[in-house]
Amino acid sequence: MNRALSDTLPAGNDAELGASTGAGRPLAIQAQGLVKRFEGTLAVDGVDIAVPEGAIFGILGPNGAGKTTTLRMLLGIIEPDSGTRTLLGHRRPADVARAVGYLPEERGLYPSMKAFEAIAFMGALRGLPLAQGRRRGRALLEENGLGHAADRQIRQLSKGMAQTVQLLGTLVHEPRLVVLDEPFSGLDAINQGKLERLIRRLAANGTTVIFSTHVIAHAERLCEEIAIIAGGKVPFAGGVDEARDRIPAQVRLETRRGEGSWRAALPADTEHDTKADGTHLWSFDLPDGGPEPLLRKLIEGEAGILSLSIERAGLHDAFVEIAGEAAARALEVDEQVKASE
């Protein structure tokens, strides 16, 4: 998908282009210590972010947390007051603007433009010839089930269709990096599912996708890595599994017996309940040694296992643990507001 871009990218400093993660995976974005104030108010306070090439990376946090300001600094739309950032190996984001697709949270299309022309126009802003953009615009609309709307004016489209057109305009020049600011906002469940599939296809083709969201479910389903942002700070950046592992997995155990030598294998703070039929329910954090030693002691002690399940924490629980309950409540309010719009 990105071969056509290789000849158009300007040469950069070799040292900059060599940026990579500790595992040797090149970085599409690297930022350290980004700070931004607006009229004396600290909006972003020392943000560090590293996005591997080809990843789906989510920036998760409530409205007003600093997500949009962070994205705009990464892209060079606004300059940080302090800190450094590297975009596709370049310290000046403008040098690689044609390799980036950006969908801002504030949507905007010319209402009198036809759908395919709007896509071509957006591509032209990133250096794509208009004739090529028109051909690709029609093709993209057809591929995404909107071929019938190609010649309709934007004002004649539903809100969801218009948002899809703007998204396709973000992708028409085949960027190496796609940045989406709250891309799911205003979409119904069907169109949200379509967008999730499109994001996965982009990543499968080697495109790096970074998106901001206040909806935890999207980040949990899509992302390899995330940054949690709250109050302008990033208290966590890393893998989704790493975030979830901040909270121990929960063991739910049901046994026939309530006493025996096997009880020593259960943590001291285990919760216990006896059912009406005499069976016993136990709930506790998974011990550090994992389930195998526990199972061995339960079996050897003849506990009479009826069921045993291990439940890992979800990303929502991890968000509460990392960012705090106030930030989590703000997320829930944001979801309710968006759902009512």
Rank of each mutant, 00 (worst) to 15 (best):
M1I: 10
N2L: 15
R3Q: 14
R3W: 13
A4V: 14
A4R: 15
S6W: 09
T8A: 12
T8Y: 13
T8L: 15
E16Y: 12
L17Y: 05
L17W: 07
S20D: 09
S20Q: 15
G24W: 02
R25Y: 02
A31Q: 00
Q32Y: 08
K36R: 15
G40L: 01
T41L: 05
T41Y: 07
G46P: 00
V47A: 15
A50I: 05
G54I: 09
L60G: 02
L60E: 00
N63E: 00
N63F: 01
N63L: 00
G64W: 01
A65I: 01
A65S: 07
K67S: 03
R72N: 14
M73N: 11
I77W: 01
I78K: 10
D81T: 07
S82D: 08
T84A: 14
L88C: 05
H90M: 12
A94C: 09
A94I: 12
D95Q: 15
V96C: 05
V100K: 11
L103Q: 01
S112K: 03
M113P: 08
M122N: 11
A124H: 06
A124P: 00
A131Q: 14
G137C: 05
E142S: 03
N144V: 03
N144E: 07
G147I: 02
H148Q: 12
A150Q: 06
I154K: 08
R155D: 15
L157M: 10
K159P: 06
M161T: 09
V172H: 08
G186F: 01
L187Y: 00
I190K: 09
N191E: 13
N191T: 01
G193R: 08
G193C: 00
E196N: 10
E196H: 12
E196M: 13
I199V: 15
R200P: 11
R200Q: 15
T208A: 09
F211Q: 04
A217I: 07
A219G: 04
A219W: 03
A219H: 07
E220G: 06
E220Y: 03
C223A: 09
E225A: 13
I229F: 01
G232M: 03
K233G: 02
A237N: 04
G238D: 06
G238A: 02
V240T: 13
A243M: 14
D245C: 13
P248K: 00
R252M: 11
T255N: 10
E259D: 14
G260A: 02
S261I: 13
W262R: 04
A264C: 05
D269A: 14
T279D: 08
S283H: 13
F284W: 06
D285V: 08
L286N: 10
P287I: 07
D288L: 02
G289Q: 14
G290H: 06
E302P: 13
A303H: 04
A303K: 07
S309Y: 02
G314C: 03
H316P: 06
D317L: 08
D317E: 15
V320E: 15
I322Y: 12
I322G: 10
A323E: 09
E325P: 03
E325F: 05
A330R: 01
L331D: 01
Q336C: 02
K338F: 08
A339P: 00
